[in-house]
Design a protein around this nucleic acid. Sequence first.
DNA 1: CGCTTACTTGAACCTTGTCAAGTCATGTGG
DNA 2: CCACATGACTTGACAAGGTTCAAGTAAGCG
Lengths: 286, 286
Amino acid sequence: MPNAGRLPGRALLECLNCPSPSEALCARATPDTLHLLARYKSPNREVKAGEDIFVPGDPSRMICSLLSGWAFRYTLLEDGRRQILDFPLAGAVLRFHPSRGSSTTFGAQALTDCVVCAIPYAALIEASRQQPAIGLHLATLISQDFSLAVDHLTSVGRQSARERVAHLLLRLFVRYRVQWPDFRLEEMHLPLTHEHIADATGLTFIHVCRVLRSLRTDGIVEFRYHRLRILDPDKLADVAEVDPQLLLRRAAPGPFSRPDGIGGGLTARANSRGTIGGQDHQSAWA
Amino acid sequence: MPNAGRLPGRALLECLNCPSPSEALCARATPDTLHLLARYKSPNREVKAGEDIFVPGDPSRMICSLLSGWAFRYTLLEDGRRQILDFPLAGAVLRFHPSRGSSTTFGAQALTDCVVCAIPYAALIEASRQQPAIGLHLATLISQDFSLAVDHLTSVGRQSARERVAHLLLRLFVRYRVQWPDFRLEEMHLPLTHEHIADATGLTFIHVCRVLRSLRTDGIVEFRYHRLRILDPDKLADVAEVDPQLLLRRAAPGPFSRPDGIGGGLTARANSRGTIGGQDHQSAWA
DNA sequence: CGCTTACTTGAACCTTGTCAAGTCATGTGG
DNA sequence: CCACATGACTTGACAAGGTTCAAGTAAGCG
């Protein structure tokens, strides 16, 4: 029935070999559903670092996912001011745009070489009919995006420059830690310029530079030559005014990842002095 | 089969009489699905103006919708700084929180007396199994929230105080116009204080006051005694640096509202000089 | 090696925040 | 009805955080 009368084409092979992680939209699709999606999807597209994956105003209604690489999403004001929204990693849905007649206001650009995949909206409707969990899974993914946007908005709207930069770096680092828990180093590759950080935090790159210097001389974080090193996790969490445990829980979740009851309610903040990814509280990083 | 052997209880009556508009989550539910949801939902809850609907950190996993009234969602930093995220209207999903083990970081508070409804996550899963479109519909609603958050983030991160305030007022007004297109007046009731505007735009209420005075003396908008009057729509759109047509399309959409092709792509900006809700370009408001 | 892009620093400036005081509108109890 | 309290709004003077402008240095790349 699925893939009726056809050879397993390139598209299906792409789907079967898809590198995106288990939280991705089609990661839990049944074989039938995967066949369906593979039949309608566009060929995977490779995007070079620095190129746009899609631009603001693109009217296409394809659901677009990031299979591998680092990207960022952004909006532009008419006079060219740019706001970076987030830095999606592999597996993220970059765009889900169900409304006809309008277009996404944001764009997405590759920070490293990326591979993206696009599925027509109509195919998604059909797939979710076949496997209803897909609709809710998509809702969950977008809801996570919303949560992250909320954190980001709070930081940009209500924190000082120093707090914002610390917040952003901490979030990036925590997420990296969750995705590659094997590396125990307080260090990561971060393919950003000062200008990216500025556009994400709502500052000028000049001021970002000053803030980074101050954070470095205070022995908190170091960001040079595209490497981020966390020198003092506790101080960093303190400056950023976030509970790293809470960040972790948000970065890791997926609807099925943890039993109920962990860290519910407002008491979570109580224990926030654990080093980030150090030997203590290591369970949270595992 | 639905509601087997029971009288149509209070819950079902509530659902059948639900005042929320056609974009709401269960607005297109089949009778069977509505029965299912009604069977599991909590009784509708009335929340007085100024009271919290839920607070940040609330671990409940009920999907919470606003049936009537004005509310706002917000986050708090530990030292009490508040960021207002948005001002949901009737029909909005206030919270969808699928991940076990964490909790929504934001809260919601009533601006006017409100009625809210809560459905257990499990019931939603069951409902979407029964009627798969529900999952995608939820994804669509949350995706709209995300789009709005993106606009908001861009404004807060990259616009001046004057632009931010203008942007917020314009957005609130446009949305009001879409919901009550009958009133042709450039005027609306807006149950906000200066402090709400400040917390939404990332400013202090003192500076908001200054900006509002300046916008008033420039003959652009007037906001006093909880009434918002648009004095010069064109200038307002100009200061806010948004295309009101674009705002409209975003505020109105729902996946089925317009034929394909309207305003696709980057050309939308071309015509943005129409007065807001005036006699010309009236079709967009109808 | 020379070009380009990113990063860095200083000084002047300006938008916005802070502090302090005062006005207005509303509601309450005597 | 008035005295008083309260919360929201308003204004001014001043301080500060962040931007702008200008110049210079370092790193990456052909």
